[in-house]
């Protein structure tokens, strides 16, 4: 009752105000009880693609430094050869089939791996890295989450009994 009086004293409005206040309090309590647990990531792997190996190298260095500062087990590696996607076209658009010209896209790959991250750490790190992603670099972040087996996966009652009989 004193609690109610306090609320009434603090918010001198209509009764609806008080009701709303009480409702929000209840909702907050319910949310607090159903607190979401932090996820666990076995590793988060970043695949970086770009046309410029120097930019990728700098970004990898940045990513590794970030991981080290945040006490995450980090490693980085690159593919030795870039992917050359070539296409050959006629030099002159309609005639002279013998004379061609060749164009190519070069895609360089780099990888960064963070091991053993909690959900909040992974979100923070990924957001920080994605915001600092330079122009012309593509990022693919693969997250491997680990979970316990759901509680509802238990053998049916009949099977439990038969199991116990077999064991004895």
């Amino acid at each position: 009752m004193s609690y109610l009086r306090q609320i009434l004293f603090r918010s001198p409005g209509t009764l609806s105000n008080v009701v709303r206040h009480l409702c929000t309090q209840n909702v907050a309590k319910v949310e607090a009880t159903q607190e979401e647990l932090d996820k666990l990531y076995k590793f988060v792997e970043l695949e970086l693609r770009g046309n410029d190996p120097a930019v990728l190298k700098s970004f990898c260095k940045f990513a590794v430094t970030t991981g080290n500062h945040l006490d995450i087990n980090t490693k980085s590696w690159t593919l030795r050869k870039p992917n050359h996607e070539r296409y050959t076209v006629l030099k002159c658009i309609h005639v002279k089939k013998k004379h061609r010209v060749q164009y190519e896209y070069r895609t360089y790959y780099s990888f960064v791996q963070y091991k053993y991250l909690t959900g909040s750490t992974a979100d923070t790190v990924l957001e920080y890295l994605e915001r600092n992603l330079p122009e012309g670099v593509a990022l693919k972040a693969t997250k491997v989450e680990v979970q316990a087996i759901p509680e509802y996966l238990v053998p049916p009652e009949s099977d439990k009994q038969s199991n116990t009989t077999v064991d004895t």
């Binding site: 693609r49 990924l126 593509a138 693919k140 972040a141 491997v144 680990v146 979970q147």
Partner: peptide, 13 residues
């Protein structure tokens, strides 16, 4: 934690 759930996010222009 025996279950491994893998998914990817993409960020590029």
């Amino acid at each position: 934690f025996p279950l491994q759930i893998t998914s990817s996010d993409y960020c590029f222009s």
